[in-house]
Design a protein around this nucleic acid. Sequence first.
RNA 1: GGGCCACUAGCUCAGUUGGUUAGAGCGCGCCCCUGAUAAGGGCGAGGUCUGUGGUUCAAAUCCACAGUGGCCCA
Length: 1056
Amino acid sequence: MAGFKEVNRDLDFPSMEHRILKFWEDTDAFNKLVEKNCDNPRWSFIDGPITANNPMGVHHAWGRTYKDIYQRFKAMQGYAQRYQNGFDCQGLWLEVEVERDLGFDSKHEIEEFGLDNFSRECRKRVEHFSAVQTNQSIRLGQWMDWDNSYYTMDDSNIEHIWYFLKRCHEKGWLYKGWRSMPWCIRCGTSLSQHELVGTDTYREVTHPSITLRLPVKGRENEYLMVWTTTPWTLAANTALAVHPDLIYVAAEADGNTYYLSKGTLESVGRGKLAVLREFKGAELVGLEYAGPWHELPVQQEVATRVVGWEIVGEEEGTGIVHIAPGCGAEDYELSQEQGLSVIVPIDGDGNYVEGFGQLSGRNITETNEMIFAALEAAGNVYRIEDYTHRYPVCWRCGEEVAFRLVEEWFISAEEIRGHMRAENETVGWVPGYGQKRMDDWLFNMGDWCISRKRFWGLPLPFYACESCDHVTIVGTLQELEERATDPEKVRALPELHRPWIDEIIIRCEQCDAEVSRIPEVGDCWLDAGIVPFSTLGYLEGSAEWGKWYPADFVSEMREQIRLWFYALAFMSVTLEDVRPYRNVLIYEKVNDERGRPMHKSHGNAIWFDDAVEQMGADVMRWLYCESNPQQNLNFGYGVAQDVKRRLLLLWNVYNFFVTYAKLEEFDPTQVAMPLEVRSLMDRWIIALLHKLVRDVTSDLEQYDAYSVARRVNSFIEQLSTWYVRRSRRRYWKSGQDRDTLSAYVTLYEALTTLTRVIAPVMPFLSEEVYQNLVRAVDGTAPESVHHTEWPRCNAALIDEPLLAHMALVQRIVSLGRAARSTSKIKVRQPLPEILIHVKTADEQAGLARLQEHILSELNVKTIRFVGPEEELVTYALKPRFNLLGPKYGKQVKAIAAALRASDAQAGARLAAQGEPIAVEVDGQSIELLPEEVDVQAQERADYSVATEEGYLVALHTEITPDLEREGMARELIHHVQNLRRAANFDLSDRIVTYIGVTDGEADHATVSAMLSTHCEAVAQETLSVSVEPASAPDEAHQEVVDLNGILVTLGVVRAA
RNA sequence: GGGCCACUAGCUCAGUUGGUUAGAGCGCGCCCCUGAUAAGGGCGAGGUCUGUGGUUCAAAUCCACAGUGGCCCA
């Protein structure tokens, strides 16, 4: 037998993990697993692509841990899997990072740099960080087919999206429309929503705010009051909005009538406006007014009027809102609902376009004075003053953001909405509310804006013909080749990216004119959403696709509901009218230890590489697993310490087992021990073990790793603090008697099974333990714990009565310890008896069966079960002197004495019934009224009681001389053990013990008496070959100790 | 404005379909054990379960409203 190798007491996760990583690599463990399961039934997981833009963070590691847990679990159950990892490669964020690296400030610099060079830089970045992330994931212990990762920038991915877009087009969903974008006129680029979230994206700024008075058409001297902080948008005004239900006023000043909302009267009028009448906003709706700049060419066709709008408020301004549909998203939407004119005033650099008179060609950053002067001249100005507010700025350059309407491409969501919602109903969301949130999103989702005016991304295959206005949508590469004016050029394309793809010219499918591709690229969620199709050869008609689709499982952060989960569903329902996934696990965010968001500038960010090398991957993974996915996770080194401490408990048990198994030369391959012949304690832990397997299996099948962590923690605690602690002595009995073997077999079974149970969550720790406990002694066992089968629960072994009874034992012991605690008698001192009251005969029988554990845990000699009728309290009768004094005078003293001497139990009973208590005083009988006697219940003398929920434990605390001697012997053993340790003796060293009594004869006699009965036990416990009642020789290790008040000099020497 | 979620001990969180006296870990106080030992274990203090109504024999749990916080949409 090879035998177990010694276990290192310290558990150094990082170094152990590096060793295991090497082992997996050397043995090709992952590929062997794939090979083992490849012909089995399938379980399909689709990996949501991680953006290959930066090193992965500890928040990615949370999700990757979940992915790995379920893949490993399913692999142990034997399912064949794909193990394909994926990288998101395109999109604005990647461009932004590349720009930063290149030191660019604006879009124009990219164009100067050259699109071809820029695309190459982007690809380079993806290649770099996908490699970094791969290595990090491997370090985390994730098993994936790393050489076969998919990249969303691949031609195949792009072509599948083209196909999807063409299908959308065929359904009539594709259209070009307007969209209001936050825009940086300095950088010449739009900003995404995500770029407006964060700490540096809003700033306190002061703007000139202008209150205008705009004349109502057809009425003399009547004006609508309007307020704005963006004067440059006034030239694009096409309407005013009021809340139909809000109260407005007509107010008079200087012979003019002004309209504004009642709530803003004070701040706008400042006491100078006299109210004429009040009315609802609806009354204003439909009024026409003369807009500011109504003389401009672009305004000539516009009929400016007042419209009703429910979102108008009066927190600021006048309650009448200036509407410029070309400058804001809300305004634009209102214009679509109300049929308002739309004027787009500026180009991408912030310059007014043609048709704006003196403003045309000027930049909005320099036109304020000009605008004020013109408005002043027209008599439109009521007031101009400074106004300070928080306003979005470009995170790149700090310039204030303008809102600008741009033309983009959309996919209509109307027709598909119902289908998507219906399909979502059939998805298993964990937690369940994910389904509701998805439904809410689908219910509210607008059309999908799929175009971006950027460079490094999916080239939209849209060819808009200038001569006939027809748009040709190219669905495949083959189609592109067929339509191209020069097919050879298509075949020669290095990749389907800008600028190369832009050089392809096709013929319009309607008029045969030559057409170029539109310059826009696609939304990166198209890239990620098509993945289940593109990675399985959907277009090639591969049989593989149908075998893996829909996925059994996907898991990402909750925010992916409106991103990836949405994109997947949209594309899947479009192409196949079916949900893309059967089960979705969502989880929240990772914060720091104190629950604050991690942020570089807060100094509380923890990098994955640091974390994994300091705490270890398995500690991280267990930390993730212990966290409720419904809540934000608090990540940090302190939390990791707690986790490690819990795992150390398991490590200690493992270490304990190996230490003694080596000593006793236990060989698990040579011993079989039927459960029936094992002790109740053994059968109990096995029952608990099988219950654990049953429950964990069910948890994992429901994607509930959180419950797994809690169950495993609880099992480890029971295993360590009850099973091992109570069974320790059984492992030291030398010789392989049945009970010792039973203990070894049982603990071995528990540890090796537990190892497999935790393997999906902690692949390293489980491998480490498995290699030593199993592989070291059994060369025929699977090479890796991850090649073993998932443990099977044998329900017959879950002895529920035994489990219940043992739980009760633990409860009774806990009560007994509480009673010991109050009595202040150390456990070392034996006590004669424990009285126990339980609720049922079954409980009593159960405890009786397991009584050895109660006796030895509490160090008592006998157990007596008592019924509720047994009085465990005693009563004391005390005279009420204030009542008896006036009545009996001098006799009171005698009465008190008599009362004390009387039968208190009987007296208490009488008093409770309202009967008088008779006492004999000086030969005469005196009847005391119940109210004259104070009946006090007190703990029965010599008993220490503890109760809980109908259970009662009473320790009899009378210490007889015999018990006292035994206690002293235990005390002696305790001191000898300490001395052995102080002397650095080996565990198995035999010794000679000397006991020299320093004081007088009486003490001498006491010690001798103790030794006369307990010498044997002392010798046995301390491995003493003899115990000498004499002073120790000089070379002995010596110490003066206190044995229950007697000072003795102890000495120990190694026996010859 | 619409939607989702949360609120339980000093902190972080459990609490299964309503069911005796609401639990754990950490922290705190006191203690035990000494053949898992630079480990292990125990006991204790600490909560009017955010508030107000309601349903019920019975509510931390179900319903309504309110408050606070987080998130999504508009």
